[in-house]
Design a binder for these strands. Structure first.
Lengths: 200, 200
DNA sequence: GTCTATATTGGGATAGAC
DNA sequence: GTCTATCCCAATATAGAC
C-alpha cells in the first residue's frame, strides 16, 4: 500500500518538525506529547504508531534538526572557503536564533541533553562531531588551523549562542554574539602570537 | 530568639546546597522538592517556610553556586595575574566537572535557564557579568585583551564545559576541555595576527 | 519551623473502536 | 494509522497538628 506508507512518512516528518521546534523553544520536560501532536495536526493517541516513546522522539529530533541546520547548506562553487566560513558564522551567531526556536540543537539543548539517557547523548555527540568536520573542511582551504582550534571555536559558537539565549538582557546578548563572531574569525585564522614570535 | 533564627539560617543554607547539587546534576525539572529536602535532612512540608516556591529556590541556588564557585577564590599575593588566570582555567575546565555536579551554574544550567521566568534569567545574567568581571580584572594585569576578547573567552569556557558534559564520549570530552584551555590562554593574550601585521 | 496527610494537576502510556 | 477514553503515577502546593 504505497499511499499508506507515504502518508505515514509525512506524518512522521511533521511530528519531528514540531517536536524539535518545541523542544528547542522550551526544553524537553516542558513540552508534552499532546502539544507536539497538536502542532503536527494530530492527536495524542497516534503518537505511538510512529515512535516508541518520548525519549526516542527526542533523539531523532536532534538528528533531524542537525540534518536541516544552516551548517549543512552546500557552499556555492563561486564562493571561496574563507568567505563561506564568514557566512556560516553570520548565520549561526545571528540574533534571530535568540528567542524561541534555534536552528542548532547543540546550542539550544546542551545542558538539557547532558542529563538524558545514553542514546540521546549519542545523537548529540555525533552532531557535535559533524559540526567540527564541516568547519574543518572549509577552514582547510585557507588556514593551518587544526583540530584543537576548530574544536575550541565550535565550543565558543555553541556556548556563545547558548549563553546569549539564557541572558535576560538583549543588548548584552547581541554583544556576546558579535564578540564570538569576531573572535571565531581570528581563531580560525590559525597562527597565534606565539607562532609568529617563534618564526621571527 | 537568636537560636531559632540561626537554626533557620543553617537549614536554609543546607537547602541551597543540596538544591544546587541536584539541579546541576540532573536539571531543574528532574529534581523534586522532596529529594532536595531529604538531601538536606528535612521533610518536604518544611520547604515553604524557607522559600516561596520551587522557582524562587532555583534563582537563589544559582546565586549561591556563583558565590562559592572556584572563580570567586582570592588570588594569593605571591601569584601574578597571568599565573592565576591559568589556575582558574585549570580548575574550571577540569574533568572533575564532567560528571554530575559542576561548580559553575553558567555551564551546568545554560539551556535550562533559557526557558525559565525572568527572575531566574536575571540571576543567570548577573552571574555571567560577574564571571567576565573577574577574568577581566586579572587579564588587565598582563594583557591588552579587552571586553570583546574576554566575553568570547568566557563563552568558550562555558560552552566547552557544557558541551563536554553532554558528550557521550569521555575521551572526546577531555580533549575538548584541553582545547578550550589552550585557546583561552591564547585569546586572553590579546593581540591577534592582524594587530601584528598592522604594526609591521 | 518542622512534620504528616492530602487536594489537585498534568502528562506518559495503553486499550480498543473505526 | 488515527482517534477517544482511561489508567496510573509523580510532584507541587496547602492544611493543620505539634
Amino acid at each position: 500500500m504505497p499511499y499508506t506508507g507515504e502518508h505515514k512518512q509525512q506524518s512522521r516528518q511533521r511530528i519531528l518538525e514540531s517536536a524539535y521546534r518545541l523542544f528547542s523553544s522550551r526544553g524537553y520536560d516542558n513540552v508534552s506529547i499532546n502539544e507536539i501532536m497538536n502542532e503536527a495536526s494530530m492527536t495524542r493517541g497516534g503518537f505511538y504508531a510512529h515512535f516508541e516513546n518520548k525519549s526516542a522522539l527526542y533523539q531523532e529530533s536532534i538528528r533531524y534538526a542537525a540534518s536541516v541546520s544552516g551548517l549543512k547548506q552546500n557552499k556555492p562553487e563561486s564562493v571561496d572557503g574563507e568567505s563561506w566560513i564568514h557566512t556560516l558564522l553570520e548565520g549561526y551567531l545571528h540574533k534571530q536564533n535568540l528567542d524561541g526556536e534555534c536552528q542548532c540543537p547543540l546550542a539550544s539543548l546542551a545542558t538539557d541533553v547532558a542529563v538524558r539517557d545514553p542514546q540521546i547523548r549519542k545523537a548529540y555527540t555525533e552532531t557535535f562531531k559533524g559540526m567540527n568536520a564541516i568547519i574543518q573542511k572549509y577552514v582547510d582551504t585557507y588556514s593551518d588551523c587544526e583540530r584543537q582550534g576548530v574544536m575550541a571555536t565550535t565550543a565558543m559558537m555553541i556556548g556563545g549562542l547558548a549563553v546569549a539565549r539564557a541572558l535576560n538582557d538583549k543588548r548584552l546578548a547581541e554583544e556576546l554574539l558579535e564578540a564570538c563572531k569576531q573572535e571565531a574569525i581570528n581563531m580560525l585564522n590559525g597562527a597565534t602570537i606565539e607562532d609568529l614570535l617563534v618564526e621571527d
